[in-house]
Amino acid sequence: MSEPILRVEGISKTYAPRGLFKGAGLRPALASASFELSKGEILGVVGESGSGKTTLARCVALLERPDAGRIVFKGEELTALSEGVLRKRRRGIQTVFQDPYASLNPRQKIGDVLGEVMLVHGLATREALRDRVAALLDQVGLPATAADAYPKAFSGGQRQRICIARALAAQPDILIADEPVSSLDVSVQAQVINLILDLRDRLGLSVIFIGHDLQLIDFIAPRVLVMLNGEIVETIPADGSIADARHEYTRALMQAVPKLETITG
């Protein structure tokens, strides 16, 4: 395997309690997490609420600075950079969140949402902007006419496509998808999952896919990290299967999910 695009070494994060309960028991939200991500790889992260999976996403995207540990992206140690330099590097790691309704400005046309990202990062000129926006929309399966509409004109699944297009507008190397389909209708979830798989194939995008649905994550991600109480408790290797999971918690997760197969026999 070639040099990984991302190396995360022992990052930790503890949120300091504020106000009334200051000084109450501190438990790290993330405790010494380490992993690598290769180009074009989809890495799954699974855990329940409070397991630290979103903190992991926020730290890796440097939306939050970890208290300890190193994040090395394309050979450069992001955690050692000043805020000013870091701002330029953030372009390479983009995030898509769970709720596409809360993630878009209702007063901004879709074309402006996408165009703004490209202008900010100097990835397109004003003249070429309309074409570039149309190309982006096409990439996520939306018509070019979507550029002139406001978010309210779109369904949840379409909004999540727009959020993905916005992330792609920055031409990132890594896409972090934090529960990207959890708020979508069942019949639409598969469309968005397939889009992420297509983008990995077409653009060579590396993806960190975070969720709570072990079966879904096992389907799209060859390698899966299992998180519990801020720690990575198990890594299911690319040639392994969740059926062979060793950790008691992973097995408990697996058994808890109702499966249609066991009912249909």
Binding site: V186, S187, A190, I193, N194, L216
Partner: peptide, 25 residues
């Protein structure tokens, strides 16, 4: 529609993709 819902829950790794119902309600 029921058939589509059921198909979209299948996690068959040999398929490479999930079976999606196109469009939205």
């Amino acid at each position: 529609y029921t058939a589509g819902l059921l198909a979209s829950t299948r996690r068959d790794k040999s398929l490479k993709r999930l079976t999606a119902i196109p469009g939205s309600p």
